[in-house]
Amino acid sequence: MLEIRKINVKYGQREVIHDLSLEVPAGGVVTLIGSNGAGKTTVLKTVSGLLRPTSGSILFEGRPIEKAEPHAIIEAGVVHIPEGRLLFKDMSVAEHIELGTIRAHAGGRTREQRLEWVHELFPILWERRQQKAGTLSGGQQQMLAIARGIMANPKCLMLDEPSLGLAPILVDQLADAIRSLNENGITILLVEQRVDLALRLADRGYVIETGRVVLEDKASALLENPRVKEAYLGA
């Protein structure tokens, strides 16, 4: 569904991603593993159009998207829920939900169906729909970021560090929500600092170090891989 072919990406003058390729099959959950600064977020930003690769291509459902503007990529069905959520703190929950739909991918669920789905997944947001985003708790803000993403009717959802700053009980809820999204037909590309959690959610994983893929395998296999265990699972 989403295919990254040998992209190189520069931040300013410095190249931070080198000849990176990866593939996210339709309906799957793929995770990117790597230490801070390895380039995981950069990969997601490049897919969502915030950054341009200097070479290589990115295909979504067979069509190149590496030159498209972010809003066009959303329209195609790829939605990026960024690290730190990037909410609009003075705008209400309802306004976030409304803005989420402005470039929604056509087809699949209707706007009403998505609204209902968000309502089901995160009932607390419905109660707080008039509240400003800045006044929500960390967990609620993450819910809102995901809800905003769902309203764009994604086929492929990219989540960047969704568990960051959440209490353990909320992390479990989040994992349930991600599973539920995937069961409802949304392909997931997940970047997550909690590698154990990420690998348990995912079918497949890529290990990235200094902008290159160094390892790629089934998630279950990576969980047992001694190199991964040592570097990322603290064992």
Binding site: S48, G49, L50, E69, P70, H71, I74, E75, V79, H80, I81, P82, R85, L86, L87, F88, K89, D90, M91, H96, L99, G100, I102, R103, A104, R148, A152
Partner: peptide, 17 residues
């Protein structure tokens, strides 16, 4: 308003900057 408060967040929400 969304762009004013977070331009990157706005772009990722689908706002044509």
């Amino acid at each position: 308003r969304a762009t004013a408060q977070d331009a990157e967040g706005a772009a990722l929400t689908g706002v044509d900057i």
